Amino acid sequence: MKTLRGIFLAVLTVCTLQSCIVSKKPNIDFFSDSGYDFKGTKFTSFNVPLFLAKPYIKKALREDGESEELVNLMKKISKIKVLTVENGNRDMLKDYAAYLNNNHYEDWATIKHDGENVNVRVKQNGDAIKNMLITVNSNKELVFVDVRGSFTADDISKMINSVSDK
C-alpha cells in the first residue's frame, strides 16, 4: 500500500511540475499551428503554475498598493501562458492581429508607454469573457500573455484602468 501511495505521489508531483518547464517551442496557437515561417525568431514559452503563482502575485499587488478589487481578480484566473519572441518583425505582428480578428477577438485597449505598446484583446461570448490576450511590443522583442478565466467586461475595464492610470 505504501508503494502504491508513493507511486501516486510521484506521478502527481511530475504532472504538477510539468507546467513549470520552460520550452523553446511556442505555446500560443498562432505560432504553433499557423505554418508561418519564423526564420531567425527565438521563442521561449512557459505555462504559469497558478497554485504556486497566485499567492505571490496577490502579495506583490498588495505591496504595490493595488486595489483589493484587482487582487480579487486573481481568483477568476484559471490559466496563464506566456510566450516571449526575440527577433520578431512587424509583419508577424500584423499577421497575428489578423489571426485574432478572424478568431473573434476584440481589441479593447492599446496603451503606449516609453516606446512600448501594450495591447489587450478579449474573446467574449455574451457577457462572459473566457480569454484575454495581452501583447507587449518593444521593437524586436515581443511578449504574449494568454490569460484564461471567467471575467466580466467590468473586470477587464478595472484592470485596464488600473494600469493606464500609472
Rank of each mutant, 00 (worst) to 15 (best):
L100M: 13
R5E: 11
H113E: 08
N72H: 13
F144D: 04
M1V: 10
E106W: 03
K158M: 10
G35D: 03
S78I: 06
K54F: 06
C15R: 08
V122R: 02
K123Y: 03
N161M: 09
R5A: 08
L100I: 03
F43T: 03
F31Q: 00
L9N: 01
F38L: 03
L142R: 13
D91N: 10
M92W: 02
T13M: 12
F31R: 01
L50T: 03
K166N: 08
G149M: 00
K81E: 07
K123N: 06
D64W: 07
L93V: 10
V120L: 07
T110Y: 09
D154H: 12
T110D: 08
K158A: 04
V120I: 15
K94N: 08
I111P: 01
S34C: 09
W108C: 05
R62I: 04
L142D: 05
R121N: 11
N161A: 10
V85Q: 04
E141W: 04
A60K: 15
L100E: 05
S45T: 11
H113F: 14
N117G: 07
T135I: 11
T135Q: 13
E63K: 15
M159P: 00
Y36R: 12
D107R: 15
T16Q: 09
D154G: 09
L61H: 02
V136P: 09
K59E: 08
K39Q: 13
N102R: 13
F43P: 04
I7Y: 10
T84W: 07
F43N: 05
V82D: 00
N137E: 15
A109R: 05
F46S: 02
R62E: 10
I160S: 06
V11I: 15
L52I: 06
E69N: 13
K39A: 05
V71T: 11
V48P: 00
M132T: 04
Y96C: 01
I156N: 05
D91F: 06
F51K: 12
D107F: 13
K24T: 11
S138Y: 14
C20R: 14
K39I: 03
V82Y: 02
Y56P: 03
I77C: 00
V143Y: 00
Y99W: 01
F43I: 06
K81Q: 12
N101L: 09
D64Y: 11
V145G: 04
V147R: 04
R148C: 05
L52E: 05
F43R: 04
K158L: 09
K158H: 09
T110Q: 06
N125T: 13
R62W: 07
I28H: 01
N103R: 12
L12F: 14
L73S: 03
Y56T: 10
V11W: 07
L12M: 14
K76Y: 06
G126F: 02
D155A: 00
G126S: 06
L83I: 08
M1A: 09
F8I: 14
